[in-house]
Every structure is written in C-alpha cells, then in structure tokens.
Amino acid sequence: MKDKEIFERICSGDEKTLEFLYKKYYRMMTKMVISNSGSEQEAKDIYQDALVVFWQKAVSGNLVLTSKISTYIYSICQNLWRKELDRKKRLSNEEKDSIEYIEHDKEERAKIINKCIHQLGDTCKKILMYYYFDGMSMQDIADDLGFANTNTAKTKKYKCKKKLDELVKSQYTESDFLD
C-alpha cells in the first residue's frame, strides 16, 4: 500500500489501516527511542502515542501531508520522546512531589470519567469519541453510525453527553471534580 492510499484510508477513519501502519514502522520508530536511552516498553508507548496523534489529525481533516508518512510520524515520536525525557528530568528534581500529586489527581479524575464512559452504550460511546476526539463532522458520524441525518446525530450526541454528565454526577460527589 502506498502512502497516498494509507493516508486516504486513515482520513476516512479506517482503523485497520492504522494497525497496518503500526506494524509497518514498528521497528523503525521504536529503534529511535531505544537507541536514545529508552526501554522497549517506552518505545512502544511513544510510538503508539505518535500514531494516535497522527490519527487524530488525519481523521479530523486537520492534516495536509507534505512529507512521507514515516517522516511525519518519526518527527512526532522524536518530539514526544524529547518531552518525556524532559519530564523525567524534572521529576528527578525537587519539584517531583508536587507535580506527582497534581498528575495523580488528574489521572484519578480521568479514571472516574473513563469508568462512566464505559457504562454508556456502544453507540453513545462512539458518538462522543468520534465527535470530541476524532473531530468528525456530524455528517460523517451520521454516515458511520447509520443515522438518518445530521440532526439525528446531533440530538443523539446531546443526549449521550447529558447522560454521561448525569452518570458521573450521580456516582461521584461534585467535590471529586470541582474542588
């Protein structure tokens, strides 16, 4: 498969092609991290994160590719790994405790929301993810999930978000989130 075809498929939201891409450049991308003092697990994580960034930009239509896909992903990997190394450096300094506390707090709240998201139905989950992460248009969401039109998709998205809002609020006290 050539770059153009891969990119078109990714832009249309084909997750299988993302898997193909992952496999294709796995060695090349992870090698960069490993040869720059990263572990294999870190390398894998960074590469996955980079692909997710690429996916998000491509699917939302916010990416005009002017280089090879591998070059683009490689540069994302490099940036992410640099950031990670900086973060590690900072963590080794004295500010470690306070940063860890804030990060931990954030992570905990994200976990709570994540749990509630998985209590939603499959369609609701998809609508919210496609809309808020993939940045898909209501038309694309309607097409993908088989809704009659964009208005139906919009109404459905509103209801799903409301449901999530209620779910989170009913299961956890506001102080968990709004402190």
């Binding site: 997750e15 996955q48 997710v52 994200a110 709570i112 929301i113 994540n114 998201i117 998985h118 992460f133």
Partner: peptide
C-alpha cells in the same frame, strides 16, 4: 478531556 482520553486508550 475524559472522553478524549478514553478514545486514546481505546486506540492504543
């Protein structure tokens, strides 16, 4: 942010 994170984790 939670929805975005959930999707990120799903893809990963």
């Amino acid at each position: 942010v939670g929805i975005q994170q959930a999707r990120r984790l799903e893809l990963k």
